[in-house]
Design a protein around this nucleic acid. Sequence first.
DNA 1: CTCAATTGGTTCATTTATTGAACCGTTGGT
DNA 2: ACCAACGGTTCAATAAATGAACCAATTGAG
Lengths: 266, 266
Amino acid sequence: MANTSSTVDKALTLLGFFTERRSAAGLSELARLSGFNKATTLRFLNSLEAKGFVEQDAATRAYHLGPAFLRFAQVRESSFPFARAVRDILHGLVEKTGETAHVSALSGGVLANIDRVESKRSNRVVLDPGEVLPFHATASGIVYLAFADPDVTDAALKAPLTGHTAKTITDPAAIRARVDQARADGYARAGETYEDQVVGLALPYFGPSGAVCGAVAVALPKARASDGAEALILRELRTAARKLSAACGGALPDDFPQVPADDVKE
Amino acid sequence: MANTSSTVDKALTLLGFFTERRSAAGLSELARLSGFNKATTLRFLNSLEAKGFVEQDAATRAYHLGPAFLRFAQVRESSFPFARAVRDILHGLVEKTGETAHVSALSGGVLANIDRVESKRSNRVVLDPGEVLPFHATASGIVYLAFADPDVTDAALKAPLTGHTAKTITDPAAIRARVDQARADGYARAGETYEDQVVGLALPYFGPSGAVCGAVAVALPKARASDGAEALILRELRTAARKLSAACGGALPDDFPQVPADDVKE
DNA sequence: CTCAATTGGTTCATTTATTGAACCGTTGGT
DNA sequence: ACCAACGGTTCAATAAATGAACCAATTGAG
């Protein structure tokens, strides 16, 4: 991945520093985060602002994501009504499983949450929309790598693997084993590798060319992760992955593994 | 405004060529539209693609807006839940007036539709989401200019004013008179200046610093544009503009003109 | 079945925009 | 009054953007 070293590339990375937690940031802060010179950062911000990708708060002088995203999200949506489909599918998953569900997609080299619907239970898993999911520490990431281009997988495993909990696996060889397992199983399971007390189950979904687009996952408290519950979730995830692939104009591959055992009653 | 001629600026303008009508475009087409060299255009597209701002269809090789917009729209929304408020307000307007309503915002130097909800009547005005509204030919544009910074207004009137219908006003002085009128009235009306047989009514809404953010408008077929109907619409638009300003963290200015005559019964 | 036109994409010398250290004026804390 | 950190500006040095010419692959007409 490294540095493609194109100016627009750099400018666009600035946008990636805006997250739910840090929804606004000042010039110096962004320069520090990005490693760019302050003058450079400012020029980028001005360009981004001119096109509505960031906005500057007149009072605090801090920058935040601009209204262009509302507009372009609309345009994309009108020709490619994906967000709506995702939303419906997630609601279905939450209703059927009772747990928090989320969908991620590869966007700019990272797997990022596209949308999420939370469980209605009081003890539930909470996720940030737009959150970036580390490949090695989440079920979504593992299952994505399992069906991704080998180059992508290699690149992801070469990157530094940061620990998130005591159980996070950071040995590339061990991750690779999990990835291979996920490819054979057709799903991935992550037990407390990203957040304590949280278990994740994920399936991939595919685009028109048959390439993997992202993952759909359910996250639940470890206490409720019984075999029966997980089997149910995997069954629901499979139909969700199928619908999601359809919404992208794709489909699950013909040789995609049956999920729990084989309860073929479509 | 002219051309700041920064590389990122140029790259970002490519995104503007994707509209509801032209949701995908090939390399040559984009190069033609933008006037950039093919090589340049390709480099831009590659950078944009690397960050998820465009995607390339594997089969047709055409580009379309990427999933990054879904993600960033989410992030922006989570810290600044505007789209949701807009949607609710528009539904309210459509219910009360029976006509198509839309909200626009300045984004990248142009006034672009943020969202729209169509009337349920069979004879209704149809709008494209993400559509760019010409300042001089729409009620939204006029009323925006009326409350915008004088520099912005001057710049907009210096740009070439293209005709859209037989009734489009293209004389800068005449437009300026309309703008001044709109500032005095607190609203703008455009009769068939953008689309034949369509009348538009628009009010501005304001952000935290008291600066105008965009416009909220109702568009209806000329045949239904009776005085009574328009008065009702203006009344509803005013409450919509107030809510919308609140959603931005702003408010209508204290000296904002009362709309129809004065039916003060809040 | 050819020919010509158009497509997406590549190359590389020229040029032009990008870069960053040092700078300025403000602001906010002590 | 001080200092530090802020947002923003300047300008020579330099690295990156540019674009005409060039491929290879489709496409469509005669």
